[in-house]
Design a protein around this nucleic acid. Structure first.
Lengths: 210, 210
DNA sequence: CAAAGAAATGAATCATGGTTCACATTATGG
DNA sequence: CCATAATGTGAACCATGATTCATTTCTTTG
């Protein structure tokens, strides 16, 4: 018996892996998945290109890892923001607001996670997480229904629709801004207010669905 | 003066161009923009690859032309469907329904036009047309407001949100189905009904926005 | 320290598919 | 029919960037 990875080595490997992931995420936040090259990740992390392949079997897998980590972080943040002890409708608004505000904080990452064209492997993963986003909002809606604060409605579908609505109204304008001059945010707080109003009205449907 | 294009030649050129466009659109309807190669377009149209470049300066431009033609066709159809002399709310519902039904008829094309990852040049064009989609619905909403059938609301933003909501609830499930077994449509008419209900409720907001 | 197993290296390789271009073919007008 | 100009051809070219792998360096243990 001449070699067996020791705790120190295992730890170092874990550190390298998370450094790769962190630098890759940083690159994606700057230039999207499109701007992610193995060579860049390697040099930003202080390793050789070949080394990246010791930790991720392919670029696609690396992208997926970046995506999953970053998206899960967003979902967790939104869930945490809506967990405060409030009436269901206010919890929902907290969730909308958190989603939007975080997207504004890191618009490039938001675009990359939700809308940027990506390779098919990642697109499939994104599909899974779109479902999780919808489910996140659907749970809050369902609670509202159960507690009588919201009218009966198909919670999952409405959650899905709201995710789409927020993506379209928040992410797209941010993306447009990137192509135009200046770095000003075209999504003002007033705009955010309107988006949240839209979402509130959408779940506050009063008329029965005939 | 030894040569000047005659009407006959001009006509033949126009025919070739539209054949290229048509075959390219057919390929996109089958396999998305990802499945569009110059070589395939050429052979499907009965010309050599180089010939394609006599009509379109690059693949990107060809994709853009396909996209613009197909999307404009969709927008025109939705506008036509909503032009019937009806109360504003019913006109809107006609528009929603037309959008959804046409997407179901040609799910691959719908996905390609609205959600498929595409190259940056096309993505930019898509951004422009997303605005046109939003504007299409916004006009109907504004009419409803002007006629007192709908509450005061930011028509353009609501139009944008509805486009996002429909895209997310219709296109995404269709796309998921592609990855799974079977070719059955996971979007039933009942599902469509719910989507339209959601959209109606969203514009029928009764509560003033505080 | 020596042996042996892991891990790191990074230049060379490879795959893909858009794009070019020298040449062939066809259309026009005298 | 000839000269001229435009269009068609498709095999060769090229750019990009992921991936590989022979070699080197580092870790572990006896």
């Amino acid at each position: 018996m001449a070699y067996r990875a020791t705790a120190f080595t295992e730890n170092r490997k874990a550190q390298t892996r998370s450094r790769l992931l962190k630098e890759a995420t940083r690159l994606v936040s700057r230039a999207g998945f499109r701007g992610l090259s193995i060579a860049q990740v390697a040099s930003a992390s202080g390793v050789a290109t070949g080394t990246v392949y010791r930790y991720f079997p392919s670029k696609s897998e690396l992208c997926i890892a970046v995506f999953e980590q970053a998206t899960q972080r967003e979902i967790d943040a939104v869930k945490a923001a809506s967990r405060l002890p409030r009436p269901p409708l206010q919890q929902l608004e907290q969730a909308f607001d958190c989603f939007i505000q975080r997207a504004l904080k890191n618009p490039h990452l938001a675009y990359a996670l939700i809308a940027e064209p990506v390779d098919p492997g990642l697109e499939q993963t994104r599909l899974v997480y779109r479902g999780r986003w919808a489910e996140t909002f659907a749970q809050l809606i369902q609670q509202g229904i159960d507690q009588g604060a919201l009218a009966q409605q198909p919670a999952h579908l409405v959650g899905t629709a709201l995710v789409g609505a927020m993506a379209e109204t928040v992410i797209i304008p941010l993306q447009q801004a990137r192509h135009e001059a200046g770095n000003h945010t075209p999504v003002t707080q007033a705009h955010c207010r309107q988006i949240i109003d839209f979402c509130r009205h959408a779940v506050l449907q009063t008329e029965p669905s005939s």
